[in-house]
Structure formats: structure tokens, C-alpha cells
Design a protein around this nucleic acid. Structure first.
Lengths: 241, 241
DNA sequence: CACCGAGTATGGTCAGACCATACTTTAGGA
DNA sequence: TCCTAAAGTATGGTCTGACCATACTCGGTG
């Protein structure tokens, strides 16, 4: 007969209602949701179903739960899509549903775009080529990450700060969505980055690349920044170019 | 004292164990997870906690649960990151945690990259400029979507097939990650796309753009394709350019 | 006024029960 | 022998009610 669609489960109804409440009531980050017991009573479902819905929302980075009492307790609306994106990509990689090639191609797209936008942002804020002029915490974070990479003793440490460096570029682009995707991508492929660094053995080429990327961006040289990050990726993953 | 990190909850332990099992045992898409009761007994937690973990995995598009008995029943591993991405973006937009500007800038990046890659893919598979040579279902889907848009009576219908058209381009690029992000992005901003079409009133400009995009891609003209999608986005969202 | 303990509302967890579903097995009959 | 219908059973879906740990709130006490 009809009814091909699986009957909606109780927690899905809760999800719909909560999302409706968010958009209709204009709830903002920081606002609180009703307690689990109260929500269960309002929606005529069990607390277990409410909890499953809240778990979904927590996974999507929309709510954050705190036990105890007071203004900070309960489920409050947040917005941290980063960890959700990271989990998503990491699990997809683990299931071999995405190839490393696809992920790195995507990363190259993000890196080129971010570097270009970051350099253009520099040019906009300071038409004269004066170094260190980014408004956000971008350049500080970039400089700090470069320094930390010089001192890194292990591949793990190096990759840690390498991620921070490239995420700082994405943040300097001014686009939080791109920055979130970049962060998730790098976190999810952290393992493969460490392997790549181990295979290379010497990180001097990568470190030189980083300086060139940093210089081109802070001097507002968009075309040069694009070329620099492209060369950098080719150095890190020569087998894919 | 120490212990700043919140004590890990029971379902988080289940998540870790299941993910470890996936990567250690080399589980693949289609494989089955133990039943909820069995998993609860193995991990010494309640079934409710197991269910919360499974709900998280389902949200991330990693498992899909089917009731009943037999080979298809239980929690089987899947890989559908699309809906998770869509939910993520839609909720982030709903919470105003991302601006429309950021989303559309990201879309422009994806569109330009996809169009370029799709055109290059055509050139690789058929060096001679013969029309309709994409290996995947890309060109068929693109052609079909263009036809459906001609027949669309409402903005909703038009946007529906517009999404299909642009997702087909992303799929023709051969990168499933980019295609998934494109699909999620378009689904999440469907509402705004409909508003934009309503504001325009006349869709003839957009339809002409689609033909040009399609022609440049199927003729392998990468630079032309990039320019065509850029112009198209400018027509759809003139206020952002 | 400062401190400390009882009260209480919150999320976190558990055990156990029941339902709906859908395959598996078995008994019955053609 | 073969087909069909009924019984069996394992699965996820839901609910109830209880208890714990946490952390704020309030009131009493010094």
C-alpha cells in the first residue's frame, strides 16, 4: 500500500518541534530550552525520546547540556558546527566512503580560496604594503603557529601547529563556514598528515613554504598566495600531483 | 583540582568503542553492528545509553536502523553524510550563526571549482569537442534539470530543479565530498533561493545562464565555465556583488 | 555580615516492561 | 511433494519509574 515512508519516530517529532520553536520564537545562541522532563510532558513523549532528540541536536552542535542548577544549567543553544563536521569527515574516511584524493583535492580548493581571500582582506584594510595588518587574530595565530612548528620535536607536534597555521589562514579569510570546513578537514585527516610528514622525513621544505605563504598573504599578494599554497600541497602530497 | 574535562558519559564510551571496532575490525558499509541489547551487555551500559550512541551515529549518517528480523534488520553501517551536512547548515543558518553572505561566498567557491573540474573531466575523456561525453550521470541529470526548469510553474519547482542542476555539476566534478557539500548547502539555503527567485520575478536570465554553463562544460571550456557560473551567481544575488 | 548546610532542579543512568515489525520455523493441508 | 498459514522469535521503538551526581538557592547560624 502507501505508507512507504517509515513512520516518524518519537524523537524525530521532538526534533521538528524544537527546530520549529527555534525559528518561530527566534531563539538565539545562549537561550535555554525547557528541561527534559518539561519538554517530555509538553510533547507527550517519554523523557528517553526527548533525550535522544537532544543527543542529535548536541551532535549537530546546536545545544550543549549542563547538569546542576542555575542559569547555566539545562540545554542551552550553542553553535559549534566544527566538531560535528569533524566527526562526519573522520567517520566517512574511516568507512572508506571518501578517498584521500577527494579530501585533499577539496583541501586544495579551500586553501587556495582562503589564501586569496586573506591576502585581499589585507589589501583592503591597508592599501600600503605594511606587514602585520590583519584585523582578526589571523596573523598572530599564523606567526605563533610558524614559531611553534620550528620548535616541534615530533611529527605529531608539527602537524598540530601546521593545522593551526592553515586554520588561521581560513579564519583570516573572514568566512566562518570555510574556516569550519577547513578545521574539520584537517582534524579528520590528522592521521594521514602525520604519516605524510613521517614519509617526508625533513620538514624544512614545508617550513619554507609556510614562510612564503605568510609573506604573500601579509603583503596582500593574492596571486602569490594562491601559488604558494598550491606548491605547498604539492610538496606535502607529491604522489597526488 | 584536575578533572576539568567533564566525565565522559556512557554513550560517549559506546561511541568510542563502536568507532574503534569500525576501524580495527575493518568494518565496511553494509556490515551489521551487534543488536542494542547485545551491545549494552558487552559494554556494560544500559540499552538507553546504547541507543543514544546509535542516534548520534545515525545523525552522522554512519548507521541506519531497521526493525524486524533477518539480514536487513538491526543497525547496519551506511555512509550518507549528505543529510547530516544539510541539517548542520540549516540549523546554523537558523541560529544566525552563519551569515547568508558567508554561505553564498562558499557556494561561489564550490560552483567555480565544480564547473572547472567538470569541464576538465570532459576534456580528459573526449579530447575532440563532441557534445555529451561525460561518463557519469552528470550530463543526463544536467539536461534533465534544465528541461524541468523550463516547465516549472512555481518558484519552488524552479528552485527544486535548479538545485538538481547545480548538484549534477558538482557530481560531474568527480569529487563526492564537494558534491555532498554542494547538496547540503543548496538544501539548507533552499528557502533563501526561493525568495531570491521570487524577488527576481523573471527566470529567463537564470535559464539562459544555465544553458551557457551547460554548453561550456560539455565543450570542455573550463575558463568559460568558471565565468559562466560566476555571472550566474551575480544574477541570482545581485545585492551581494 | 559571613559562612555553612538543607533543599531542590537539572542532566545522567539504569532496569524492566511492553509494542510493532518482519523474518523463520513449523504444522497443516492440498 | 509442495504450498500456505500460523506460531515463534529477534529486532528496534517507546514508556515508566526510579536513583545518582551535580550545582545552584535559600535559610539558618555563628
Amino acid at each position: 500500500m502507501a505508507d512507504k515512508a517509515r513512520r516518524t519516530r518519537a524523537f524525530e517529532e521532538v526534533l521538528l518541534q524544537v527546530e520549529r520553536r527555534i525559528s518561530d520564537d527566534g531563539l538565539r545562541v545562549g537561550d535555554r530550552l525547557p528541561g527534559e522532563r518539561q519538554l517530555a510532558e509538553q510533547l507527550k513523549v517519554s523523557r528517553a525520546s526527548v533525550r535522544e532528540a537532544l543527543r542529535v541536536l548536541e551532535t549537530l552542535g546546536v545545544v550543549s547540556s549542563q547538569a546542576g542548577r542555575g542559569p547555566d544549567a539545562g540545554a542551552i543553544l550553542t553553535s559549534r558546527p566544527d566538531s560535528a563536521l569533524t566527526d562526519l569527515l573522520r567517520l566517512s574516511l574511516g568507512l572508506s566512503s571518501l578517498s584521500l584524493r577527494e579530501v585533499i583535492d577539496t583541501r586544495l580548493m579551500l586553501e587556495r580560496w582562503s589564501a586569496e581571500q586573506a591576502a585581499q582582506a589585507v589589501r583592503r584594510t591597508s592599501p600600503d604594503p605594511s606587514p602585520g595588518a590583519l584585523s582578526a587574530s589571523g596573523p598572530d595565530a599564523m606567526t605563533r603557529a610558524i614559531g611553534a612548528m620550528e620548535a616541534a620535536a615530533t611529527a605529531e607536534e608539527f602537524v598540530e601547529h601546521d593545522i593551526a597555521f592553515h586554520v588561521a589562514i581560513a579564519e583570516a579569510s573572514g568566512n566562518r563556514l570555510v574556516a569550519a570546513v577547513m578545521r574539520a578537514l584537517r582534524d579528520a585527516m590528522r592521521r594521514y598528515a602525520i604519516e605524510a610528514v613521517d614519509r617526508l622525513g625533513d620538514t624544512s621544505v614545508l617550513r619554507e613554504d609556510h614562510h612564503r605563504i605568510h609573506n604573500t598573504i601579509t603583503s596582500g599578494d593574492a596571486a602569490g598566495a594562491i601559488d604558494a599554497v598550491t606548491t605547498h600541497l604539492a610538496h606535502a602530497y607529491p604522489e597526488l600531483f
